[in-house]
Each structure stands twice: as structure tokens, then as C-alpha cells.
Design a protein around this nucleic acid. Structure first.
Lengths: 343, 343
DNA sequence: ATAATTCATGCAATCGGTTGCATTATCTTT
DNA sequence: AAAGATAATGCAACCGATTGCATGAATTAT
């Protein structure tokens, strides 16, 4: 019943047509030295016999896999799933497969993932690094061999690597400025306890906006956690214990902004009257929470598509490693959670 | 600079230790016929020389890839990302890679994906089918060769395939019964215009609960769409035009339940006083919308983990294809959107 | 008609592990 | 110490597609 079902190889086709495997191999591609009608005979016979090319043999010989490795901190967020969706779309259309792995925010696991993907001989890598990834050394396996490596969202800097980001500094600056315009004077910033540039940039943007508006930067208003739902609720508790009460919150992501907002509401705080709240990412929950959350639209799908297409262009040698950083457009989305003065 | 960096092979290790490649190959594994100290010498030398196993050669020989193919309708939903996260965790721990592709709800694309994954020689397939997949014929490539195929969430029935589901009928029955207990008498059901069993089962559960409570089934209260956000808003419009006004809504997913709920609120309807609303999936938005949405908890991560581990057990011949259907536990989560009579 | 040229195909080595079987080294047993 | 049993290693044939080079066939030039 479940017999081995002998696979059809080019040898079978060759035998069936009294040709050599070499000719069949060439006929199956666009090799110029094959007569048109011979190619047609080969293709027809291949279809008829149900031939499926054996990728391993091909890969082994060509040392190329048409496979792209992806490493992300976690898959289970809306943002990430959208990014991956974008990558898959582009990769699939170009004949590439995606192998996806999660680092679970651990550098150790990230190292393992790199090694695994290296062993799988992926043609290139798309990476968003873990919170505490600082060094690039675990990517040396790829860098040394000049295998293209592209960072997105959480990026590291390296001359050989293209990075895809948004301008986190500017976005945070815009959010903070907006909060100040809406009357914020003591604005809490929820950020990640992380070594990466993303959150550092957002913090800088926040600080600069304060400075440019003659507001003092108060270290105690920066709450660093892991930006989880729980962290948002804890932040709310910390905020409620502050005296005087802050009048604004800028969270570096939406999920903790929302949980913070909800906890504040539950404690009887009026949003936006007493405290205005803004997030980051434009997650679906931002449009559901009441009041709707002001946030920054982060073009996840576009970033995924662009990451994949940039990598593929490089693999196809259509493009060198010249571009170092691609900055995508972000957009401040103002909603009711920060709107005191309705226009 | 970017020289070809000669790869280290078992031949190099063999030469360095004056052993045969065969011995090295065995030493690298757990072959019993290799002396302990020889294995150690091999492993040490391998590490020292920076050996990385060439998967193609290995795959070619063993015709096994340690790769699992995944086909899902769409990646960009919270539910799906959680499922995939669970799969990746299990697969990675067992030394498997995941190749993921999206059918975009199109049978045509699904067919292409199947072929691609087949060509990539995945060892098995995890599939959640597109809305309008009815036939199994495009999986014949796999079924004929007895390559394990496991369905999850949106499943098709086949003697060779294990399916992972929740009891959609029962869950819907419970939701509807709950709605009725809370005073619902004219309950709208939002469902998908789909050929799959999932939504049909939920519809049946809804109908049976009506029947068991002596409520007439009214065809015009069933609104079939694509369960998108937009569909939810449109459903709200339809509901508002109904006379008499329905007093309950049971949506087959959360995102359209939420958008419907919001649209109803915006139109001045009081939830749950005038209309009670329930969803399905326990998406994060269900805990954010006000009032919080009653829904069914769908154990996505567990389903992903179980799908992967079931497949891997079968690949490792630890288990035959005996289990046909695995039903995961669901849970009705009652929240304020349906609570009229507070306990 | 023969040489020169072009075109189409075949030969055979190669990619790097894997594995059945043969062989050699080592250890028991008497 | 010799014979038999057992453990450890090596040999060589694979897996299936690719590709540089050689060969044979067809075409053109002389």
C-alpha cells in the first residue's frame, strides 16, 4: 500500500527518450545547446512521468538552496505576523522558501538559530535581534562567507549588512511633541530594558522633544520593563503612586500602552482629561481600546516585503551591498487618547 | 576577502585524523560501533576545524530533510501567529525546520504551495485549508506517497490524516445557550461564506441551541460574510435595519464581533442591555473592547505544539496513523458584553 | 568531395555524507 | 597459545543533478 513509489529522476527520463541524463538536465533548464524539439520532448516526457526535481541533488551540486532564513524574537505578536506575511509573499513569488525561527529574546537561542540556519545552508538571513543582542559575533558564520544578512526592526550595525528601520528617534520625537502640545508636562515613558538601538532611539526622541519644549527630563519618569501587558499594568501602579501625578504616558509599544491605559481607567483616572496616553506600532488593539489610542503606524507588511525583496535582489546579484540603511516612512496617528483640545 | 573559504567536510577530518570518512560520519552520530575515544577525537577535531554538516548531502542520501511544511490561509492574525509560534517551538526543539506558506484563502494558491513544499521534500505537512477547499485531491502528491499530513483548525477528512480541532459544534452550542440564558431571543449569527466544516459546525451548534430552547431558527438572522473587520461593521448596519431589533449577536470570530459591537455602540445601542454580543477565539482585542467580549478560548499555541509533535512522532515512527481526530479543550469565557444578570 | 565550422549530445567526474558488507584489531575462552 | 567471538574501522557503491570537456553529427565554406 505505502510502497516506496520509486521517484522519477532525470535518468528515467533519459532512458525513456534514449538520451543522456546530461541532456535531460539541460533540457529542463534554458540551456542554449539543446535543440528546441529535444527540449520539448524532454519537458513533455517529464510532465508525463510526473517528474519532480530533487532539490538536494541540485542544491548539493550548486550549493544554493533558494531558501531564506528568518530569525525573530517572537512570532506571537500581530506586528511580527504581519512582517512575516509580507516576507512570505515576496519570497514565495520569487521561488524562495522561508525558514522561520524564534530566539525567544535570548542571545543564546539566537546563536543556535544562526547555526541551524547556517547548516540548512540558507542563501541569506533576515534578522530582528533579541532584546539583549549587542555583539554581531554570532553572525560571523554568515558574515565571513559573505552570505547576505539583512536586519529589520531591531537592527545591528555592520558595513556588510543592510538594515531596515523606521526613524524611531523622529517618531518618538513626534509623539512626545504631540503629547506636549496637548498639555503634557510630566510625561512618563515606558520602554524596554534592552541593549538595542530601537528603544534607545525612542528614548532619545522623547528626551529631545522635552528639551526642545523646555521641559526638564526626569529620570524617574522612565519606566523600563519588558513592554508586556503585565508591564503596562505595573507601570500604571507606579504612575498612580507618583506625586504629583504625571499627565502623560508614552509607551514604546501598544500592548503595554493599552494595559496601562486600562489600569489607569480602572483606578478612576480620566483619559485623556487627566492623563493622555500614546503607544507605538498601530496594533489592532489600539483602535479598540477606549478611548482609541494615539500611536505610530509602523509599516510592518511593507517592511517584510522590502526586507525579502532586498535580500533576493542581492542574491540574484542585481544589487551590491551598497545600501546600508533603508528607512521606512512612519506616521503619527492621533486618536482620542491624547486629544484634549478637539479641533 | 570574500574568498570561497573552502568548506570543511568529513573528508578533511578523516584526513587530519588518518581515519576513513565512514568512521568520521559515524563518529559524528551515535553509532554504537565507534570507540568512545575515537568519537571524542572526531568531535574535537570537528569543532576545532569548524566543521558544519552539509545537509544536502545528508538529505540526498537519506531522502529526509528534517523540514516540515506549513500551509495556512493567512499569517497576519494573532491566532495564526500563536499557532505557528507553538509549532516552531516544538519543531525546533526536535531538530526540525519549518517552511511556512500562505494560501491567501485561495485553493489555487494552496495547490501551488503543496507542489512547492513537495519539491522541497518536506518530511510532512501541517495544513489549515482555505475557505473554499473542499476536495483533497491537491494533496494527493503527499497522500499517495504516504507522507504524513496533519490538518489543524480548518480540517478536511481523510482516513490517513490526523486532524486537530476543537469541538466547534459544542462551543457554539455553549455560546448560544449562554446568550439565551442571558435573555437573548433573536440572536444574529455572523459566519463565513465558506465550504469548510468549522463554520458549518458552529452554525449547527447555534441552531441546535435555539431548538433546544424552543426558539425558532430564522434564516434571515444568519449573516454570512468573510468575518473581517469590515464584515462586522456591515453586519451592524444590517442589524440596525432589522425590525424588530435583534437582542443578541454571536460572531464566529472576535475581530468581526468587535467591529460589530463598536458599530452598534456608535449607533447608540447599549451593550449588553439592548444587545448582547459574543465572539470566538479569545483574541487580545476581546479583552480590550468595552464592554469586554464574551468569547471562546481557542488554545492556539497548544494546537500548534500538538500538531507539530504529533507529526514528528509519526515521522519518527513512534506512532502510526491511528489517531484520526484530536479534539482540544475549548472554554467559554464570559465577559461583560453578554452579562445582563450580574451574579 | 573534403576541410572547417558550428551545433547538439554524451561522458564522466563531482558535490559530501551514508551504509551494507568486508576486513582488521582486540578481547575471551579454554 | 590457538581458536573463536566481538568490537572497531575501512571500502566502495550509492543518492540525483550539474558541468567542463570530448565526441559525433550536421552544416557551411572552399
Amino acid at each position: 500500500m505505502s510502497g516506496p513509489h520509486k521517484e522519477i529522476t532525470i535518468y528515467d527520463i533519459a532512458a525513456a527518450l534514449s538520451l543522456s541524463p546530461a541532456t535531460v538536465s539541460r533540457g529542463l533548464k534554458d540551456h542554449p545547446a539543446i535543440r528546441k524539439d529535444t527540449r520539448k520532448r524532454i519537458l513533455d516526457k517529464a510532465r508525463e512521468m510526473g517528474y519532480q526535481q530533487n532539490m538536494f541533488a541540485s542544491n548539493l551540486r550548486r550549493s544554493r538552496t533558494n531558501t531564506i532564513g528568518v530569525i525573530v524574537p517572537r512570532l506571537n505578536s500581530y506586528f511580527m505576523s504581519v512582517v512575516i506575511a509580507g516576507m512570505e509573499k515576496v519570497a514565495n513569488a520569487a521561488g524562495y522558501n522561508l525558514i522561520i525561527s524564534q530566539s525567544a529574546e535570548s542571545v543564546k537561542k539566537e546563536e543556535t538559530n544562526v547555526r541551524t540556519l547556517y547548516n540548512s545552508r540558507v542563501d541569506g538571513l533576515l534578522v530582528s535581534v533579541a532584546y539583549d543582542s549587542e555583539s554581531l559575533s554570532h553572525f560571523n558564520l554568515f558574515l565571513d562567507k559573505n552570505i547576505p544578512l539583512i536586519f529589520f526592526d531591531r537592527v545591528l550595525d555592520h558595513p556588510q549588512c543592510t538594515s531596515l528601520v523606521i526613524d524611531n528617534y523622529k517618531a518618538a520625537y513626534e509623539v512626545t511633541t504631540h503629547l506636549i502640545r496637548q498639555g503634557g508636562t510630566r510625561i512618563v515613558h515606558l520602554t524596554a530594558r534592552s541593549k538595542g538601538a530601537v528603544y534607545a532611539d525612542r528614548l532619545r526622541g522623547y528626551q529631545q522633544a522635552l528639551r526642545d519644549n523646555n521641559l526638564a527630563f526626569d529620570e524617574s519618569l522612565v519606566l523600563a520593563g519588558n513592554l508586556s501587558e503585565l508591564a503596562g499594568a505595573e507601570a500604571a501602579r507606579a504612575i498612580l503612586a507618583m506625586n504629583p501625578l504625571p499627565d502623560g504616558v508614552f509607551s514604546a509599544n501598544d500592548s503595554s500602552a493599552v494595559s496601562c491605559l486600562q489600569a489607569l481607567k480602572q483606578a478612576g483616572i480620566k483619559i485623556p482629561e487627566q492623563i493622555i496616553v500614546a503607544g507605538f506600532n498601530n496594533d489592532p488593539i489600539s483602535k479598540v481600546v477606549e478611548p482609541n489610542l494615539t500611536t505610530v503606524n509602523y509599516p510592518g507588511e511593507e517592511m517584510g516585503e522590502l526586507a525579502a525583496s532586498t535580500l533576493i535582489r542581492r542574491l540574484d546579484r542585481l544589487e551590491g551591498a551598497s545600501l546600508n540603511t533603508i528607512v521606512l516612512r512612519h506616521e503619527l496617528i492621533v486618536r482620542d487618547s491624547t486629544l484634549r483640545k478637539k479641533p
